[in-house]
């Protein structure tokens, strides 16, 4: 596997208080990885260490083959970051902010700024001071700033905080498209799980200052979803707590059945359809959120 990010046994403490403990983490080049965990789990500190602005107390890190401590500037020159605070100059206009950061990152393509402003629907606002922007506009401008120099890795710390639903959709769908077109590796930190499910190739879960699990959704599903809970929309009115020997319970407009595996769904449906109507069928415990809580349960 071609790992663009390779972290082994990284620990970090601030004034004797552990913030990261023995973190192992790998990211394949060109993938979108979701770094998930509750507030205070250490996600932001981890991103700062990967960028070489904080120093790990122990462990080894390789980003694009570079050590963040000794080759920090090389890493920072080839990566883009959107922090939670956006980090923009409020007294400067959107355009001036981009001009300034373009100089810092050595961007020579003069059309790049206009392209990004257009893409993130900020063209009409480029000459207004950033201080007058809404939170969503600031976040979008921060994304423009992070993408100015066509980074190889994009670090996004809570990129959808403060965005309205339209803004969230726009940013996430753009990120997916951008990743597909440019093969840029993206690491997204978030605690809003449902937003990431559709765009991430794999996920890493942080809990108690370490990464407790990492894998694709199907790998995680295989490992953590030991039984399948299916919500079936049907006109069947339950008289018992079992159907075909499987546990079930009534819900509004249907039933909830617990099956040992996905293969039993067809058998169940065939039997049900002989006497009843079926309007909808949905597995409810294989989404990211259910898996996240299962993973967390394991370490508690």
């Amino acid at each position: 596997m071609n790992s663009i990010i390779d972290v082994r046994g990284v620990s970090k403490a601030f004034q004797g208080q552990l913030v990261l403990t023995d973190v192992d983490f790998k990211v394949e080049a060109g993938k979108i990885v979701g770094l998930l965990g509750p507030n205070g789990a250490g996600k932001t500190t981890f991103i700062r260490i990967l960028n070489g602005v904080l120093k790990a107390d122990s462990g080894s890190i390789r980003i694009m083959g570079h050590n963040p401590i000794t080759d920090g500037d090389e890493i920072r020159a080839s990566s883009g970051i959107v922090t939670e605070s956006a980090g923009l100059y409020h007294q400067m206009s959107g355009r001036e902010n981009l001009d300034f950061f373009a100089d810092l990152y050595g961007v020579t393509d003069q059309n790049q700024k206009a392209r990004l402003l257009e893409l993130f629907e900020l063209s009409g606002h480029e000459n207004k001071p950033v201080g007058t922007y809404s939170t969503g506009m600031k976040k979008r401008l921060a994304l423009c700033k992070a993408l100015l120099h066509n980074p190889k890795i994009l670090f996004l710390d809570e990129p959808t905080n403060g965005l309205d639903p339209d803004g969230i959709n726009m940013v996430l769908s753009y990120l997916k498209k951008y990743n597909q077109e440019t093969k840029t590796t993206v690491l997204i930190c978030s605690h809003v799980l449902h937003q990431l499910e559709s765009i991430c190739d794999s996920f890493a879960f942080m809990e108690n200052h370490t990464i407790i699990e990492q894998g694709t959704l199907s790998q995680l599903e295989q490992k953590y979803v030991t039984e399948v809970i299916v919500r079936i929309g049907t006109d069947l009115v339950l008289k018992e707590t079992k159907i075909l020997g499987y546990d079930c319970k009534p819900i509004v407009d249907g039933i909830l059945v617990t099956l040992p595996s996905k293969t039993e769904i067809s058998t169940l449906l065939k039997k049900l359809l002989q006497q009843h109507q079926v309007h909808s069928v949905e597995i409810v415990n294989n989404n990211l959120e259910s898996i996240y809580f299962k993973v967390r349960e394991r370490v508690r």
């Binding site: 090389e74 920072r76 980090g87 923009l88 409020h90």
Partner: peptide, 14 residues
Amino acid sequence: ERRTLESLLFSPVS
């Protein structure tokens, strides 16, 4: 105070 120092430290500015 304006939280822009973070942006500078995250950039390739020595």
